[in-house]
Design a protein around this nucleic acid. Structure first.
Lengths: 304, 304
DNA sequence: ATAATAGTGTCTTTCAGACAGTATAGT
DNA sequence: ACTATACTGTCTGAAAGACACTATTAT
């Protein structure tokens, strides 16, 4: 049962095979990781009574070299030969933006030819959420600058064509990234093709202004994932600080889902995921609200 | 506004930069695609009256070379420099198993160091579903053999540890792949870690018998995705032939979800996704059943 | 007092689960 | 007639949606 001594058709054992194996003999693509780091920000209070509005924001870095020199890209970079993908993603984020120790999940792997003018590059993107206490990010190392951009997205047109064997829904979205000094935009065409049994969503960038590579497409994909997962998981709590009010939590759901929710119903829905504390907000100019914390292990619930 | 003439810190324009860019200067990982191809199979009828039972099956190929020579692996292979990932996946599947033109969605990208003894290999896995008419697969090219294996999975142990700041659910699963001549198995430990706000699922292979690389882990992940998506999408129809009875459809749901469903409720649930035909089954030894086809565009419903 | 938010009670509608019933082919 | 499946009707309870009501602070 000496498995290691089995010989292949060239008469080599595994040991011999690995010795002569030349990993470099084929022309190979490069591989990078990219991070979508979302957070939530309070806008300024309008008066002593009103609560501040919340906005969703995304971290971008300014490119300090070709290609797309001077444009904004998702933080990320090449994976070293001796580190796992998640390690690489954490390291790159630390290097470029000084952010550390955050929630992260794999989003999608982008590998179309021609996505990078340098060479064939395949990128795995990661979705990250940080709580709103992360105020300042400092650009470090590779990146020329790192900044938060307020994210919004608008549906410009939608057209549905139903034919014999196929239903095509074409939508045109405009993505806005609003920064302190710069505003970036992208027009993205989304084609949803329902043909027979196969449904396929395809996004193409029609026009970008200031957003490097195909990153506008990745951002749209990340937004979609975020919207989906907030409904049936607890990822939203990664955007909250340790203590929060239920209204704050509701606002976070509202900006991500882009709808208004009814207070009573919302509270019923998230009741199992929060734990009441004895603390209250102060100086609010109206009735103070109770502070809650995340309940990591609600009874019986298995979280995706 | 001649953007292409902007110079970087080395004084190069983009054109000059790309000319001297050397993609090969870093040691780089190799990149492959792997395919999980699921299908459903009818077992033999026990008597003229009884309906045949259905089983879930998965396509595997026998390795014809080191490493893992003689063991079974997911079909897949290296991505050429001039083809997209999906193209590569389709090509490899055609080469190795002669299967063509099927539903496919990206599953996950696996990049841990040490997953392959040859060199650092990063793999993007794809989930595919084919309808049960695909009976024979012939091994071609790279693969020594290609065969369907009946898939099942059993929970052996489960332990839940709740501590102050963390809930850990440890489960031990046994994966069975039953083939005509060979049976493959793998013990997989699943650790679900709920710590503060972060939930993380981690799978490790405890033991495998006959399954190459980390593919047992990929299969488990694919099964989980399949179970999740069948609940809120229409992917199940990719497993059906053109015409099917509602009982057949229900059986497919049942083997994937591993539960029994109530007929009346199931029919209510999928009512919008099917179209009645005027045809019926014949020679069934009992009341014949109406045949249905997939309804690709139910009113208003947007399919993920 | 008032503005603005905090927090609760309850009616309605919708949907999932459970179960019981009727229908119909082949032998 | 009998067997095995096909198909339908309806009760129940839980959850989602809608809305109205009360409570509480800083100014």
């Amino acid at each position: 049962m000496d498995e290691n001594k089995i010989k292949n058709k060239n008469g080599l054992t595994e040991e011999e095979f690995l010795e002569v194996y030349d990993a470099g003999k084929y022309e190979r693509p490069s591989f990078t990781v990219d991070m979508l780091v979302f957070s939530v920000r309070d806008e300024e209070k309008l008066n002593y009574r009103k609560l501040p509005k919340k906005k969703l924001r995304l971290l971008m870095v300014k490119r300090g070299d070709h290609p797309f020199l001077g444009q904004w890209a998702l933080p990320g970079g090449f994976v070293n030969i001796d580190e796992n993908l998640e390690e690489a993603a954490h390291r790159e984020l630390k290097e470029e933006t000084n952010i550390d120790n955050i929630y992260m999940e794999q989003l999608y792997t982008w590998g179309d030819i021609g996505r990078d003018p340098r060479t064939r590059i395949i990128s795995t993107s990661y979705l990250s959420l940080v709580d709103s206490n992360v105020l300042e990010v400092k650009a470090a190392d590779d990146a020329e600058d790192a900044k938060w951009f307020t994210v919004s997205c608008e549906l410009l047109e939608e057209e549905k064509i139903v034919s014999e064997d196929e239903t095509v829904i074409q939508s045109l979205y405009k993505l806005f990234l609003i920064g302190d000094k710069e505003n970036l935009t992208a027009d993205i065409k989304e084609i949803k093709r329902v043909k027979g049994k196969i449904t396929r969503i395809e996004r193409t960038i029609e026009k970008t202004s200031g957003i490097a590579f195909d990153h506008a497409k990745i951002i749209m994909y990340g937004l979609e994932r975020l919207r989906n997962k907030i409904e049936y998981t607890d990822i939203a709590f990664n955007l909250m600080s340790e203590l929060f009010t239920l209204t704050e939590l509701q606002q976070v759901y509202e900006i991500i889902l882009d709808t208004e929710l009814l207070k009573a119903n919302f509270r019923r829905k998230i009741a199992g995921m929060v734990i009441e504390t004895n603390e209250y907000t102060k100086d609010s100019g109206h009735r103070p609200s109770k502070l809650f914390r995340f309940n990591a292990s609600p009874d019986g619930q298995i979280i995706q």
